[in-house]
Simulated scan of single mutants.
Amino acid sequence: MLVEFQAKRRLYSCGHNKYNGLGIFDEDTYEFTEIKPSLFENDDILDFSVGFDHTLILTSNSKLIGFGDNTYGQLGNGITEAQLIPIQIELPKLRFNENISNYHVFCGYFKSFLYFPPSSSNLEEDLIKLFRRKEFCDISFKTENGEIIEAHKLILKYRLNQNQNENEKLQEIISKKSIKESNQIFEMIYSNNPKINPKLYFEIKEIINSNEKIEETMKRIYLNENENDFIIERKEKQYKFPKLILIMRSELYRGMFLSVTNDKSNKVTDYSELSNKSFQLLEYWIYSNQIKDEIQITQEIIDEIKIGIDYFQLNQTNPNLFDLLINKFDNQNQNQNQNQNQIQNQNQNQNQKKRKEKCLIF
């Protein structure tokens, strides 16, 4: 069996080494020398940046390493003393430092930045990311070499045809594939994207519900309370969600559920400033990326939703929820104005008709 070797990223430096900004414990050097601080000898390097005489390195083990000049506190360790020996810097209270690979570091002249780009708003991409998170996998398949590949039973249930034997058929296909091909198969099932590997997609197309959109899948989960494993209590009403869906849609819950230290209970009393109508609107949008038709949009709802989007840190799509609400609100007002004009015209016509009738009588 061939084992794929994953080489670690290496970082080399050379040049002026004041305050050990090169991280190599040496004088100025004219040749590239590998930086090997013991603080991250077992980690992979995700990102790094160099300032005037200081350096920051982000590692795969959720570590931020810094060294060099610190006259203006540019290392972010709370003091202003130069750090000749690389130190681990305490990260700020980031929302999701377990996903440190999403962050980037930038060093300026005497300043530094830690940047977190927005999460993907593409539901297919989010599903594939979840597929790779083992802590949420609850069903296993064996590849041709006996390797175990794990998946999400809930997502498979709603992506495969509704037949009890579909998982068995999937296992039969996976048992003849390599680990790489198996991963591609699951990515195609989750995203319904045959372009990943058209040949493999042809083999699984009979068991996959290929005509169903991801949003329709989410709405079906929404209607099936048996699959919901997290409760949000608001006043005297309960709202049930699958944790997987909340992870995809809300950065607040992504941080809550994927955090090592946070409470992982299945119930939380949550934001009470939202009216039930606004919360129902958010609930439906979380699953479907659509606004519930029967809810009449008011300015109060728009104001509440704006607060709710920020509070729950909802991942936005294009167009985003707030824009959709504004458009629907404008259309409603326009339709109401048109209806009022029609009623006024009808009343005017009726009044004119009555006046004519009176004139004829006299």
Rank of each mutant, 00 (worst) to 15 (best):
L2C: 06
R10L: 13
Y12W: 12
N17C: 03
Y19F: 14
G21T: 03
G21L: 11
G23P: 10
I24W: 12
F25C: 09
D26L: 13
T33S: 10
E34Q: 15
I35L: 12
I35E: 08
D44F: 03
D44M: 05
I45W: 08
D47F: 03
F48P: 04
L56A: 00
N61R: 13
S62G: 06
S62R: 11
K63Y: 03
K63G: 05
L64M: 00
L64E: 02
D69H: 10
G73Y: 01
G78A: 03
G78M: 02
E90G: 01
E90N: 05
E98Y: 14
N99S: 15
C107A: 08
G108K: 09
K111L: 14
K111M: 15
L114P: 07
L114V: 06
S120G: 10
S120C: 04
S120F: 06
I128S: 12
F131Y: 14
R133A: 13
E135L: 10
E135V: 05
I139R: 07
K142G: 14
K142N: 15
T143P: 10
N145Q: 14
G146N: 00
E150N: 15
H152M: 07
H152R: 07
L154H: 10
N163K: 03
L170R: 02
Q171V: 08
K177S: 15
S178F: 06
E181M: 09
S182R: 07
Q184S: 14
I185L: 13
Y190M: 09
P194T: 07
K195A: 15
I196V: 13
N197K: 01
Y201A: 02
E203L: 14
E203I: 07
I204F: 06
K205V: 11
I208E: 07
I208R: 05
N209W: 05
S210P: 11
N211W: 02
E212R: 00
K213E: 08
I214M: 00
T217K: 00
I221T: 05
Y222P: 04
L223F: 14
N224E: 02
E225P: 03
N228M: 15
R234D: 04
R234M: 09
Q238L: 10
K243G: 08
I245K: 06
M248T: 07
R249I: 11
S250K: 04
S250C: 14
L252P: 01
G255D: 08
M256N: 12
T261K: 11
T261S: 12
N262M: 15
N262F: 15
V268P: 03
T269W: 04
T269V: 12
D270R: 02
Y271L: 11
S275N: 10
L282P: 01
I286E: 09
Y287S: 01
I291K: 06
D293H: 05
E294A: 08
I297E: 08
E300L: 11
I301Q: 01
I302Y: 06
D303S: 11
D303Y: 11
I305T: 02
I309L: 13
Q313Y: 03
N315Q: 08
Q316E: 15
P319D: 10
P319R: 09
N320M: 00
F322G: 05
L324T: 00
L324I: 06
L325Y: 08
L325F: 09
D330L: 12
Q332M: 04
Q338G: 02
Q338T: 01
Q340D: 06
N341C: 00
N345V: 08
Q350K: 05
Q352V: 00
K353F: 10
E357G: 02
E357P: 03
K358Q: 05
I361V: 09
I361L: 09
